[in-house]
Amino acid sequence: MTEQLKPMPEDWRRALAVVAHPDDLEYGCAAAVAGWTDGGRDITYLLATRGEAGIDTLEPEECAPLREREQRASAAAVGVSRVEFLDHRDGVIEYGVPLRRDIAAAIRRHRPELVITLNHRDTWGSVAWNTPDHRAVGRATLDAAADAGNRWIFPELTEEGLEPWDGVRWVAVAGSSTPTHAVDATAGLERSVQSLLAHRTYIEVLTDEDPETYCRTFLTANAEVAAERFGGRPAIPFELFGR
């Protein structure tokens, strides 16, 4: 028998979702976010880049503000009003101290109990190679969750008025090939389709399929695969690291 996924913890109020690009969260876990915001939880999105290198036919200077607008609309579709960008360069994000510091600063600023990120491993299920940006941001987020609580790491943040925050209780990784937990996607699935569809400019150059059909098919199929390990309910899986 396939081991069943556990329900995600529910005893939290604030979350910070940290990813590399516009659309990462929409492909990964927007249905879960919709359910959480319905329940009154406060969620902030933090993106390392503005996705400016994501569309071959658009110069980065033109692409960045367009993708930022689409990301804000996408977040609003699932009840998220706070979207921040770190302005690292799309495609060449480097794992290292500066990235850890930027994410730790955001964790101190927003003081989440739950931090969410995307697959930080080398591959997607040992089938497709993951991108450098995803790997760098995912790893840095896992590390920054601890950095944020140590006053002697990045002491300059304290001088800037960002007191240490050791209140992160979990880091949840979406898109993991080894998930441990899941969220019922039933209530949020339709809004997750609209959330991904908000990235229409990107999707239209990604596929020749009708954008709404593409979004609905992709997200529904993924939720149904996870259902096999979540009591038959469509689900968004996460690999959960406790702290």
Rank of each mutant, 00 (worst) to 15 (best):
M1P: 12
E3R: 11
E10R: 06
E10D: 09
D11E: 08
R13T: 01
P22R: 02
D23E: 05
D23S: 07
E26M: 08
A31M: 10
R41S: 01
T44H: 01
Y45V: 00
L46M: 01
A48F: 07
R50M: 06
D56R: 10
D56T: 11
L58M: 13
L58Y: 07
E62T: 15
P65C: 14
L66F: 08
L66T: 08
E70S: 04
Q71P: 10
A73I: 09
S74L: 08
A76R: 09
A76E: 13
S81K: 01
V83M: 02
D90A: 03
D90V: 10
G91D: 07
V92S: 15
P98A: 06
L99H: 02
L99Q: 04
I103F: 04
A104Q: 03
A104T: 06
A105F: 01
A105T: 09
I107C: 11
R108D: 04
H110K: 00
R111S: 02
V115K: 01
V115I: 05
V115N: 00
T117Y: 06
L118G: 05
L118P: 01
D122Q: 09
T123E: 09
W124P: 12
G125A: 08
D133V: 09
H134K: 06
A136G: 03
R139F: 10
T141H: 02
G149Y: 03
R151Q: 07
W152Q: 15
W152L: 15
F154Q: 03
E156V: 10
E159T: 08
W165S: 02
G167N: 05
V168M: 04
G175E: 04
S176K: 03
S177W: 11
T178S: 12
A182R: 03
D184Y: 00
A185H: 05
G188I: 05
E190F: 13
Q194A: 15
L197I: 12
L197R: 12
A198H: 12
A198C: 12
T201A: 02
E204D: 15
V205R: 14
D208L: 13
E209A: 15
T213H: 11
R216F: 09
L219S: 04
A226G: 13
E228M: 15
E228V: 14
R229S: 06
R229Y: 05
I236G: 09
I236V: 15
F238E: 13
E239G: 09
E239V: 10
L240M: 15
R243W: 13
